[in-house]
Design a protein around this nucleic acid. Structure first.
Lengths: 214, 214, 214, 214
DNA sequence: AATGAATGAGGATTCATTCAT
DNA sequence: GATGAATGAATCCTCATTCAT
């Protein structure tokens, strides 16, 4: 699942976020939009850019998506859906202990950022250009993801595992830290994705003043 | 200090970042550019927008700054300079104990974000549209600011005050957390700027696994 | 050959230089560009002017030519190509006697200037606004044309038909004389195109101090 | 005479066309306009260019000349006046023999082109951008110069010195040849100005089918 | 599904010129 | 004379989008 063909031309460093739909060029177009938004920003990227990247004609784009905004919306929708799904899945598998759950959540989040760096970057930096219903939908997905962290935080605070005096904003800050990775991460850098996830899990638990840092 | 007259027409929620220069409209133009970039993004803001905000003509903008890019550069330059100056000043006054120094640095940073939210937001979200020398200059200022935090981290690690196993990336994450405030903060929200600073100082020290959380 | 449809709306006094390409408006655009450059000069003509003349929208111009410079380049390319072709053809048909060849060359050149006065004018007066590769290409075509004259001059000098003591620069001056016609010629003037050609052939042979002036 | 100070900064290869007037910057402005028009064409040169070259402010230009067109007019006025004066003077000194007079006229004309190449170039290529009274005035000077040649031609035809069957247009062609030098001449080229003048005198006499080529 | 042509609005920037000082 | 600030119109060109095929 979440495999696609667009990565076959391997222009994109983050592979396979965009879901295959059966319609021929759809994946390529969405992938190209993601790349373009990542490279130039929403307003900096032109529909011509996207068409060029997708190796199709400008006008053909409109056979798939009715506007540039819809492209952004769809990209962000899929990115946030995947992030949410990954996080939920990881937490579900982590059992019931807050520390383990938090570690799992952070590692899933960091894993997403590392696997889909461009998507993660676009999700934080171009989100603001969404409007109306699209915006709300994405906000909802984002909030769902963050509330996973919040629930864990409160669970840990209630159980005495986390001692932070500021539980209300801790989740937001943990999420901020994780998303910020997308702004500087380079594969082939000092740390592997796995190490990065481990590291950030530690940061997160420390921030929560966990009794056990794992 | 760093007061200006541009805020007299009180269009800007974050007052007085842009320095008065003596040249009539210069402050108004720079302030307007900041607002426009904050509201629409660099590529979304048009020179006409900026001129309208500054209550001057489009062409007159070019008597002050030779291009939109230069406007962005100058805005970011001043924002980062002020942030750096505040942080340096605060740390200098904080004495020599790592915990106290770190608290001072975080509170200065958060103070900047709260006082100049738009500038802080633009500094992280529009920085990417800088190029060439301007970019390097801003990178340098940003690095200078971050390295203040890094030095404190290492000082604390050396002294045994901070126990984090990952000192290399701790500063970056602390700074990320602080800048991220600009993306959601609302004056009149639950927390005052002062409380927010206090809170983030605690998060930062906890993240560093400080023996004493102050 | 070299006929086109653009002259059907008969806006252009010099008919049919621009070659039909099959693409709908292409000929009209190129013809309009030629007229505009002729009437206002390269820098004086605006893309709006050209669009208006071609009865299309400003932006549609860019579906055919990527810039004003490209329009100029293409106009000059076609003009010089036609001039070169005419001259070559005429000389080839003129046999091997220098005097006859020179007469043929001059008459072909003058014929081009008379038939495509605007193009001839633009070719000399707006050439300077070409740059880069386009410029070199046009220079080459121009040189090819001039070297036809030069070869004839040397042939005549060698055979003793031309007695000029300055054969090196004679061709350039003959060509100058012929192109200059484009700056003052009016159809319906004292001389027909044919008479003008005859006259300039005589001037050229005289300038070369030909033994036989034909 | 016709010396000026503008050439002190020696930016201009053709020295001293523009007459000193006593008003401080006037010569520099006019010289700069000439250079700018020569380098970029009338429409390609901006008032800012001219001000920059003259090392004064944009607005100060308007203290001397009320518009860009007036600058062009004045430049062309002075250029044509000098050309006319030189030619008249030379012919007057040449005695009464048509061949000698024609030689003198051609050599004076070529001398002007060589001494003031930019001015000569601008005179032929930017003349078209003059309008109204200015245009007529310059046309008159140009015609005066050409009529010097015409008178000599007719004198020589009447006296039997020139045998051309086309005396009506001969003068125009001689003048064309001479002005065209401005489009290709390079000091330090194969021929000195003096040799060039000699050569063109010969071409001119040959074109007129003079009995004696001097 | 796919294309090339078409368009009106708007992009940043420069223009010649004016004005207050 | 000289300047910097100011302006409205115009510059080339690109935009997202639509339409006919």
């Amino acid at each position: 699942m979440t495999s696609n063909l667009a990565c076959m031309n391997s222009r994109s460093p983050d592979s396979g976020l965009i879901k295959e739909t059966g319609r021929g060029n759809e994946t390529a177009i969405l992938t190209s939009a993601l790349e373009a938004f990542g490279a130039e920003g929403f307003n900096g990227a032109s529909m011509r850019d996207i068409a060029r990247r997708a190796q199709t004609s400008l006008s053909n784009l409109y056979n798939y998506y009715p506007s540039k905004s819809h492209l952004l919306a769809e990209v962000l929708r899929q990115a946030n859906a995947e992030l949410l799904a990954r996080t939920e899945r990881a937490v579900a598998k982590a059992g019931n202990v807050p520390v383990a759950r938090l570690r799992a959540a952070v590692k899933a989040y960091v894993g997403f950022v590392v696997d889909h760096q461009t998507a993660a970057l676009v999700a934080i930096s171009e989100f603001r250009y969404l409007a109306g219903e699209d915006r709300e939908q994405v906000v909802q997905a984002r909030d769902s993801t963050q509330s996973i962290f919040e629930k864990i935080v409160w669970q840990g605070v209630d159980s005495g595992d986390f001692a932070t005096p500021y539980p209300e904003d801790a989740a937001r800050n943990i999420v901020s830290m994780c998303s910020a990775i997308s702004t500087w991460y380079h594969a082939r850098g000092r740390l592997s994705g796995r190490a990065l996830a481990e590291q950030h899990a530690r940061y997160a638990l420390a921030l929560l003043e966990a009794r056990e840092l794992g």
